[in-house]
Design a protein around this nucleic acid. Structure first.
Lengths: 236, 236
DNA sequence: GTATCTATTTGGTACAACCAAATATCACCC
DNA sequence: GGGTGATATTTGGTTGTACCAAATAGATAC
């Protein structure tokens, strides 16, 4: 029987909705493989064509993870999932003139807000986390590979202070998307030291509970970083 | 001939990349329909199945727009495209406990940063745009439908001041995603007036070039809005 | 020139078949 | 008995054909 144009009008969308539900309610457990395509086509009485289509849609929405020849794996949606979903488009945006600049500008804005907040309401734990990250950063000045890592982790502390799970994911997005430009920059102990000093200045402003100074230090730091990027890549 | 497992290993990904390129370079013009599936299968010597798969992927990436029975339309990627792409996942996130709260919190943070910036560097044009939006808002106090609109537009001004095209898109995202909660709130002239007064307070702080006051006013305003949401929906 | 009816195109779905990579099964040897 | 490797069985990837119903283009009538 060739059943076409079903009442509801759409197609595999129904399957998608059904599976979406099963994932959200936990009937399909996070991390487990999806039922095989043949099973699904039997369960919903549809052709494999439609099953594949549905699975692909779910993959596009980030609810399942598909590797080329493997069973799709269920993934309960999280902030990181959302961010991965747009990575493709963002890639194109960054290729456009001014794309990187625009993204980086929002990062400055967000992080400026975060350091202000840190200066105002960082707990003792937050501050010791910050101090730890700063020390790690200092000790890595002569190891550029490690310095990049500790640099990122220092900044990460700010994104954690709010206790809002969205923000750490946002930072991961920023670092992932901007990494191509950062990683290919010449990294010299000299520059590392300057960056460390900038971090230290931010830290001290936060210690002094001075939001304005913290914001200024952060902006100076990121502006300098941007200048380095420009020096490496030119107009972007 | 049944050709499988081609050298490169993947499948419709190649087609996706090819089409991606054609879209970015403008060979496939923004707004125009994609070639028909049959044409594409001939052009790339692949089965229609694969063509459809590729098109779907492009759709998932937001590079083409597909309505159920219509020709897919090419869409050059923009920030809005990116945001639409994640709308699906975000929907799930908002359903989770605390989801709305977390999102709204980031909105407060971002907008607080924006009003600070506005207070510091708004041009004469920015300020008159703000004043215009404020007046429109005042005149709509007794028309709740219109008030919601002018409310949104008042806030929109802040997202425009930076001249960064990412931010207006972000605001559209916020309003879209949070709309379901805002629109179903009881809207009374009384509340409208209170919100208008809050807007006015923010505006005046910006006029005075006082970032701290502007931020405080903005935070008070949004905190109140949140309280209203809570009063309507309870724990969310 | 506009409206209406008809032919053709085009997307949506189904089914059957096949390949190659994964995975499960089992016999075999230490 | 507990690994180890060869074998059988899934299972995802792809092709081809076929058919329906909605869109669109084309022709015809008004």
């Amino acid at each position: 029987m060739v059943k076409t144009g079903t009442s509801a009008g759409r197609a595999a969308d129904q399957i998608v909705r059904a599976l979406e539900g099963k994932i959200r309610t936990g009937q399909l457990v996070d991390g487990n493989p999806l039922p095989s395509e043949r099973e699904l086509m039997e369960e919903f009485s549809i052709s494999r064509t439609v099953v594949r289509e549905a699975v692909q849609m779910l993959s596009g929405k980030g609810l399942v993870e598909t590797r080329p020849r493997f069973r799709p794996v269920v993934r309960k949606p999280g902030v990181d999932t959302a961010i991965e979903t747009i990575s493709g488009v963002v890639g194109h945006l960054l290729d456009q003139p001014g794309g990187v600049r625009n993204l980086f500008e929002t990062r400055i804005m967000v992080e400026a807000a975060l350091v202000r907040q840190a200066a105002k309401e960082a707990t003792r734990d937050d501050i010791s986390a910050l101090k730890y990250a700063l020390d790690e950063n200092r000790m890595a000045i002569n190891d550029s590979e490690l310095f990049y890592l500790t640099d990122t982790q220092f900044h990460a502390v700010f994104f954690n202070i709010s206790r809002n799970p969205v923000l750490p994911a946002v930072q991961r997005a920023y670092t992932t998307w901007l990494a191509p430009h950062w990683m290919r920059m010449p990294r010299l102990p000299d520059r590392n030291r300057r960056n460390y000093e900038a971090h230290k200045a931010i830290f001290e402003a936060i210690l002094m509970r001075d939001p304005d100074a913290a914001e200024d230090a952060l902006r100076a730091h990121l502006a300098q970083a941007w200048a380095q990027v420009r020096a490496t890549f030119g107009e972007i």
